[in-house]
Amino acid sequence: MRIIDSHIHLDKYDIVKRKQILKDMEKVQLESLLTVSMNLASSINNYQLSLKDSRIKPAFGFHPEQPLPSDEEVNELLSWMREHRHNMVAIGEVGLPYYLRQENPNIDNSAYIVILERFLTLAKEIEKPVILHAVHDDAPIVCDLLDKHQITRAHFHWFKGDIRTVERMAEKGYRISITPDVCYEREIQELVSAYPLKLMMIETDGPWPFEGVFNGEWTHPGMMHESVRQIASIKGLPIEDVYEALYQNTKDFYHI
């Protein structure tokens, strides 16, 4: 029944909730937290959190759903990441600003692609997996970039996309992670049905809130037990086998 949260913004929780999560880890059989970063300040915060608790496994990067950083900011972040490459399990979260462009169609995606390529270049150089924010129309673009940079260890978190892209990703062996919205979102349930369990992980993307049975609750990794039950039901597999597969998939992918 062991679980690992493969994608959480731990540094974005307030101190009280963060302490509660860490306190509850043993109770909810949560072994590790893969905590992703938004920018340099966030990367430093996650790094410092990991020094205090070895169960926190940090990833460093720049979240694309925010205004473009300056060249100086990108260079500083990449330099810091290279210096701390032995302190991170992955580069992330990185990707393309799909939701930001829905709000402002005038945003130039090409500038974000340039930045993403710099992170992919670093991932190849230091041999780290990448945690990707790439959904819908952006996913094929990112798949092309992964091919271009010969990146094979790719994790698409909270993925949403068309069946052709889903099949392409599965063929490449890319990982996806499933959030608690699998308990009520048909689109995510269909993704779970289509994607191989051996390439699947679970996540919360906390502190992002959820609806359905979780409506009104703050996002706690313990919610992922409901995700596992739903995945097992969709796949028609014994829940013990699904727990073990999701757990081992994450351990193997991140070498933790």
Rank of each mutant, 00 (worst) to 15 (best):
I178M: 08
K17Q: 11
F159E: 03
I256D: 10
R101S: 09
S227D: 02
I4N: 04
M38T: 10
I126G: 04
E76T: 13
A154G: 07
P69N: 08
K19Q: 10
I3R: 00
T204P: 01
R175I: 13
M38S: 06
Y112N: 08
V74R: 00
E187W: 08
S227C: 02
T165Q: 10
K27E: 09
S6V: 09
L33C: 06
E26V: 05
M1N: 14
D162K: 15
L199R: 00
I151Y: 02
Q48M: 12
P196N: 10
V166N: 03
A170P: 01
E73V: 04
I131D: 12
H136G: 00
D71K: 13
I91G: 06
D138P: 01
K198A: 11
I151K: 03
G173N: 04
H157D: 11
K148D: 11
F159L: 09
V130E: 09
E65F: 14
W80K: 01
K57H: 07
I231G: 14
A170Y: 02
D14H: 09
I15K: 14
G95V: 07
E26Q: 08
G206L: 01
E244C: 09
E167L: 02
S227V: 07
L132K: 00
R18P: 00
G61T: 13
G216N: 03
L116P: 05
H133S: 11
R186M: 14
E72M: 07
T219W: 01
S32T: 13
H155A: 12
K235M: 04
I178N: 11
D108Y: 00
E187V: 14
I234R: 03
E127R: 10
L132E: 01
N104E: 11
P67S: 15
R55S: 15
V36A: 09
Y243N: 11
S37G: 09
A41R: 12
N39Y: 07
Y195L: 05
F210C: 06
G61H: 09
I8C: 00
S79M: 13
A90P: 11
L68A: 13
V28C: 05
K12I: 04
M88S: 15
A41S: 14
P105Y: 09
I8V: 03
R164S: 15
L30V: 12
D144E: 15
H7D: 13
T152H: 06
K128Q: 05
L199N: 02
V182R: 12
Y243H: 09
F214W: 06
Q248Y: 13
R2E: 15
A90N: 12
E103R: 15
M81R: 05
Q48V: 04
S227H: 02
P97F: 12
P140A: 09
S50Q: 01
V142M: 07
D241I: 06
G95A: 07
S110P: 01
S50A: 14
S193Y: 15
E211I: 06
R186D: 15
E244R: 13
D53F: 06
M88A: 14
